[in-house]
């Protein structure tokens, strides 16, 4: 379990995170929501070990995150940040194979894993193409494939590993959004702990096992999507004029603009 307890992060006098507590459990897709500047990406950086909180503590499998070595951490969790620019003309398979850096794999195994994972994200048969020649959405899925092989390379099991994603579908079309979210849901069911920042509250409600809503560095909601059915939480946090209605098939809460 990735255990975040009372984490506070202060930068230049501003509380970017204020006593944030949450748990990312294996087998669950936890979705982080919140308006711009609420501290979502900052929280992701704390959970991945890139930023040290001023107070509070983060534990990964009962061991403080700061005590993990970089090499062990790289085998335990993979992190996808927003928009990655590559300065030189690497091919798609070269970019994806960077995710195998923490592992020692035979060439044939590596190629098989890379091509299978590219199929998973809908980018099969693009191995030889140049990364820079792809569209933003395609590049985003290539980077997703890279963090996935980082976890899949462990033949032992996918269980007890963590995936931390910062808006992995921001540049994708509808078909690809659905494909990626279904993939994340499936991975969670297979035992992965998924931490995913999203902007779309409707998709979050539809796919998330657990939603965490941030506002100005504080957790203002943490629970199942169903719990938002009877609450004004989304409307007040996002300060938007919305109509709340249940999903026609699943009954989960959905929100529409009031124009």
């Amino acid at each position: 379990m990735l255990n975040v307890c009372e984490v506070t992060l202060i930068r230049s006098g501003k509380h970017l995170l204020d006593k944030v507590s949450l748990n990312i459990k294996p087998g669950e897709l936890t979705i982080i929501l919140g308006p711009n500047g609420a501290g979502k990406s900052t929280l992701l950086k704390c959970c991945s070990g890139a930023l040290q909180p001023n107070s509070g503590h983060i534990e990964l499998d009962q061991k403080p995150l700061a005590d993990w070595s970089l090499a062990d951490l790289a085998k335990k969790r993979a992190v996808l940040t927003q928009q990655i620019h590559m300065p030189f003309a690497l091919t798609v398979s070269e970019v994806v194979s960077l995710g195998l850096a923490p592992w020692k794999l035979r060439e044939a195994e590596a190629m098989k894993l890379i091509s299978d994972t590219l199929d998973d994200v809908g980018m099969g048969n693009t191995q030889e193409r140049h990364y820079a020649s792809l569209s933003g959405g395609e590049q985003q899925r290539i980077q997703l494939a890279r963090v996935l092989v980082q976890l899949f390379a462990d033949k032992a099991s996918k269980e007890g590993k963590y995936l931390l994603l910062d808006e992995p579908i921001s540049a994708l079309d509808l078909h690809q959004q659905q494909r990626v979210l279904r993939l994340l849901k499936k991975l969670a069911e297979q035992g992965l702990g998924v931490f995913c920042i999203l902007h779309d509250i409707n998709l979050a409600s539809l796919y998330g096992d657990n939603l965490v809503l941030l506002e100005q560095g504080k957790v203002v909601f943490n629970g199942k999507p169903e719990a938002l059915e009877q609450s004004e939480r989304i409307e007040t946090t996002y300060r938007a004029d919305l109509i709340r209605l249940p999903h026609p098939e699943l009954g989960l809460p959905q929100w529409q603009f009031r124009q």
Binding site: S48, A50, L70, A71, L73, A74, K75, A78, V79, T81, I84, H85, M86, P87, F88, L90, E94, L98, G99, A101, P102, Q150
Partner: peptide
């Protein structure tokens, strides 16, 4: 050279892949 390739992703991403 393998670690140099990781740097091409950016410093933050290289750290996530285990490079100091």
């Amino acid at each position: 050279s393998k670690n140099l390739n990781l740097l091409l992703l950016g410093e933050e991403e290289a750290r996530y892949l285990g490079l100091d």
